[in-house]
């Protein structure tokens, strides 16, 4: 099997290894890096369960081979909380609003929502729906997810300058 060396920065920590050339980024994260928070849903780029941040931008990690990500920085759901374990405002809002049931799409939803808030701290409801449109959820009907992003938006707006 063809193998290739890959260097990544994952959640702020350097990682390197030799991986099968045909390993997708999501399989690499799960099987080689050992971070199983990122999930595989469809492996053809529709469901968004495998979303990660690639140099800060949300992408589908099933639509990339790990070798393509060589030298890049990846953030997974495991990297969203503060180093001391404190939940991010979005994670906390997801919990508060019960924006999930089975939890399978949740990491991808959180990644998409984090990317939105990072780019636009005061998104409209339309912006929120647009940002989540590439992530499918079968449990929630999306309502409590949208509610959670709204709650995070409101709370982050309340933070004194």
């Amino acid at each position: 099997m063809n193998r290739q060396a890959v260097r990544l920065t994952v959640n702020g920590k350097p990682w390197h290894g030799e991986v099968p050339t045909r390993l997708t980024l999501v399989d690499c994260l799960r099987e080689e890096v050992g971070l199983t928070g990122t999930h595989v849903g469809c492996e053809h780029g529709v469901c968004g369960a495998c979303s990660v941040l690639l140099d800060g931008e949300p992408v589908r990690s099933c639509l990339m081979f790990a070798v393509q990500a060589d030298g890049r920085a990846i953030t997974t759901v495991e990297g969203l909380a503060a180093p001391d374990g404190a939940l991010s405002p979005l994670q906390d809002a997801f919990w508060e609003c019960h924006a999930l049931q089975c939890g399978y799409c949740t990491p991808g939803m959180l990644i998409a929502a984090h990317a939105l808030i990072a780019r636009n701290p005061a998104p409209s409801d339309g912006d929120i729906r647009e940002a989540l449109a590439g992530n499918l959820c079968r449990c929630t009907g999306y309502q409590q997810i949208v509610d959670a992003v709204r709650l995070a938006r409101r709370r982050m707006g309340e933070v004194p300058p």
Binding site: T36, T38, V77, L80, F94, W95, H98, L110
Partner: peptide, 19 residues
Amino acid sequence: RRTKEDRRFITGLGRYVAD
């Protein structure tokens, strides 16, 4: 009431069969 389950899912610590 916040659920007991959600915390592990929002932190990527669920344990599914593929894990």
